[in-house]
């Protein structure tokens, strides 16, 4: 089942397209890697997928009520915000779930346990390490039971243990039929999980075999 389809889309800011003629679709259960050199337009693509940037041209279709769980780079969030880990995860409950049931404290606690932060719920979000912050943000996305996860470099600057927790949860979700779109600079670490790969380059997006992206030659091509 297709969750999201882009057709001949131009993506960018105001009327200026950073990426042109973008076309691909995301189906349930896809684990899609998104890679490209710095400044190639990965974040533009990600922000367009979640609806933060209107399309410059073309169209994007998705079923009504599609639920997106977004995990930004933890560095993009304000460090001074007086917010506990519990507060951050609870933000994910602030829209009802698919079946009309409003997730609450129990679901937030469950998500915290899933990411291994149950003992840090009362701690300030700002005081967490990079990996812990990323896990808290994943818990926020988990709470609302999304159809599609969109993640911006969730394992960059994160220790191996935290990266393993994040990837394990995403693999479980993908096998349960949830789609995952992940921007990464570490495709080699994701070779076993990814089912599709998109390379963002030359002002457009090209689908390439996963084996090609998740190989040393592929990585060399990414940074070329």
């Amino acid at each position: 089942m297709s969750l999201l389809t882009l057709e001949k889309a131009g993506l960018g800011y105001s009327s200026k397209a950073v990426l042109s003629n973008v076309g691909f679709s995301i189906a349930a259960g896809d684990f899609l890697l998104l890679a490209g050199a710095n400044g190639s337009g990965k974040s533009t693509l990600l922000r367009s997928l979640i609806g933060a940037l209107p399309l410059v041209q073309g169209k994007m279709d998705s079923p009504p009520g599609l639920r997106i769980g977004y995990v930004p780079q933890q560095l993009s969030l304000p460090a001074f915000f007086p917010v506990t880990v519990q507060d951050v995860v609870t933000m994910g409950t602030w829209r009802g779930s698919k079946d009309g049931h409003n997730p609450g404290r129990a679901e937030a606690d469950q998500a915290l346990t899933q990411v291994g932060l149950e003992k840090r719920r009362a701690q300030s979000f700002a005081q967490l390490s990079g990996g812990q912050k990323q896990r808290a943000l994943l818990a926020r996305a988990l709470v609302s039971n999304p159809d599609l996860f969109v993640l911006d470099e969730p394992i960059s600057g994160v220790d191996e243990a935290a990266a393993a927790v994040i990837l394990k949860i995403l693999a479980e979700k993908a096998s349960a039929g949830v789609a995952v779109v992940m921007v990464t600079h570490q495709p080699l670490a994701l070779a076993d999980l990814a089912t599709r790969a998109l390379l963002v380059h030359k002002q457009s997006v090209e689908e390439i075999p996963v084996a090609e992206m998740c190989s040393l030659e592929g990585v060399a091509r990414l940074w070329a």
Binding site: R47, I50, G51, A52, I68, G69, Y70, P72, S76, L77, P78, F81, V83, V88, M91, W94, R95, R140, S144, V150
Partner: peptide, 16 residues
């Protein structure tokens, strides 16, 4: 309002 202030992109993804 707090969700927007903390992470505006996530608030948009949540369809607020």
């Amino acid at each position: 309002l707090l969700a927007i202030a903390f992470d505006c992109d996530n608030a948009i993804a949540m369809r607020l």
